[in-house]
């Protein structure tokens, strides 16, 4: 019953790795089960929720729909790769500051999808943010703190000295 394992080489969070796994496995399973990177979550494993989003060559993909085998030679980025030199990525910091992560289960998928957005559009409008994140479901936040966190992080990444609006944190 055990298929011979496939071995591929790829780059995960900037580091080259080799990994052996049953060839039918999805990238989600390879990351979580064979590379021990459980930061990437799943909510359906059917491409319906965005929880498993990671970046492959800089683009957001649903890792539950991607065969691990197809990632040979590619650059994969997961939430574990976002902290740099012990410091949170500005998106992570903004999510933490605003409470954009409640249960935190959808958060890795949102962070990476937002990171890909900001890479192409450093000053996205609210509408653009909504469109970019429309494939990610969150049941806790109502998305509003997530938009605000993306906007805050974008401003900080542009070098602005941005702070959250008081009504975001304290109400009107």
């Amino acid at each position: 019953m055990t298929d011979p394992k496939a071995v591929i080489a790829l780059t995960v969070n900037g580091e080259p790795v080799e990994v052996a796994f049953a060839p039918h496995k999805t990238l989600l399973e390879v990351l979580r089960e064979d590379l021990g990177l459980t930061g990437t979550k799943h909510g359906c494993e059917l491409g319906e929720c965005g929880t498993c989003a990671v970046l492959v060559d800089g683009k957001p993909v649903l890792s539950c729909l991607v065969l691990g085998l197809t990632c040979a030679g590619r650059q994969v980025r997961t939430v574990e790769g976002m902290v740099r030199d012990g410091q949170l990525h500005p998106l992570q910091a903004a999510f933490a500051d605003l409470g954009a992560a409640q249960c935190g289960y959808c958060t890795p998928g949102f962070l990476l999808t937002a990171e890909a957005l900001l890479a192409t559009d450093p000053a996205p409008t609210r509408e653009r943010i909504k469109e970019a994140l429309a494939g990610n479901l969150c049941r806790c936040t109502g998305y509003l703190k997530i938009y605000e966190a993306v906007e805050l992080a974008a401003a900080r990444m542009r070098g602005e000295d941005a702070e959250p609006a008081p009504e975001t944190l304290y109400g009107n």
Binding site: G39, T78, V79, E80, L88, Q92, D97, G104, T107, L169
Partner: peptide, 21 residues
């Protein structure tokens, strides 16, 4: 005050261990 939650950093870094993790 509008402070960070004590588990916020674990959650945004993917370090929170949910049951299936």
């Amino acid at each position: 005050k509008a402070l960070r939650k004590v588990d916020a950093v674990a959650k945004v870094t993917g370090r929170t261990r949910f049951a299936d993790d």
